[in-house]
Amino acid sequence: MVIGGLESYLIVFLVMSGIFAILTLGLNLQWGLTGLFNIGIAGFFAVGAYTSAILTTVQSPDHLGGYGMPFITGILGAGALSGMIAYLIGIPTLRLKGDYLAIATIGIAETIRLVFTNESWLSNGTRGIAGIPGPLREALPHDYYNLFYLLITAAFAGLAFLFIERALHSPWGRVLRTIREDEMMAAATGKDVFHYKMQSLVAGAVIMGVAGGLYAHFIGFISPDVFKPMQFTFLIWVMLIVGGAGNNTGAVLGAVVVWGLWTGTEFLIDALELSTDYQTKAGALRIIAISIALELILLLRPEGILGETKKTSD
């Protein structure tokens, strides 16, 4: 089998869609199920990417590392550290109103970006970390490696999907939804609201960290620039809201559709071969378009394309 140009592009697109789908699923657990407002997604993603990169790369004078651990250890470490940071953020904020979590997560995302930008010993600063290994990257030809990686990404996305789908229908998920709708009611039925929220926040962050690790091993290079906090986080939010918060299929669909539109327009802007100044402006126009799309969905179709399916019998 020969992989042609178009197929090869499609494979890359699908891998990236898969990574975004994992992120959107993580957010669906936090927001769609529990109503936790996390706008520091870029931070958890970055922590995952850097952790996995540092754990798996060979010795380099430019940054911390030299552990040369296997891919799967890197991914697990990525999820673990991201979850730990979520835990620390949860302690001061989860007993308070939702907006405080929002403000704190944006703060942690910004702080994480500052750390990776300024602590050269750790992350090689703005120059980033290169040469991040991938499973069988050396053994397979480029396109087949991407195809193989697509399978890995799909497996992780499937795992995240099944986990949250299970959660949706479990007693645990029912408590989370009750907290989302009415915290007082959940507390009145004797549920420890703080701990349930914490579990959801941490589990979501673990999923986001894993997505970060997957990204690092796929691209092979990361730098703080990749994680422009707000734009990136906003994109994930748009994916979930477009697809339908609370609906896992919607989350995956939203990720694929929005990522398709996003890279499609980027491709288009590149193809026009504009001057740099106009390219920046065209990029800005793209963000304006997606912001307007979000506002229109919020105003006109708040449930998204699919929306949440009712769990109760009529």
């Binding site: 109503g35 407002f37 706008i39 939702g98 907006d99 929002a102 707000m230 734009q231 906003f234 939010w237 809201i241 920046t280 402006k281 800005a284 126009l285 963000i287 304006i288 997606i290 912001s291 307007i292 979000l294 506002e295 919020l298 708040p302």
Partner: peptide, 20 residues
Amino acid sequence: IVLLISSIGAALLLRNLILI
């Protein structure tokens, strides 16, 4: 929270309009 989400959209909208 819906207002908060829409304000993030408004923020990006304004910033990029200014950029243009």
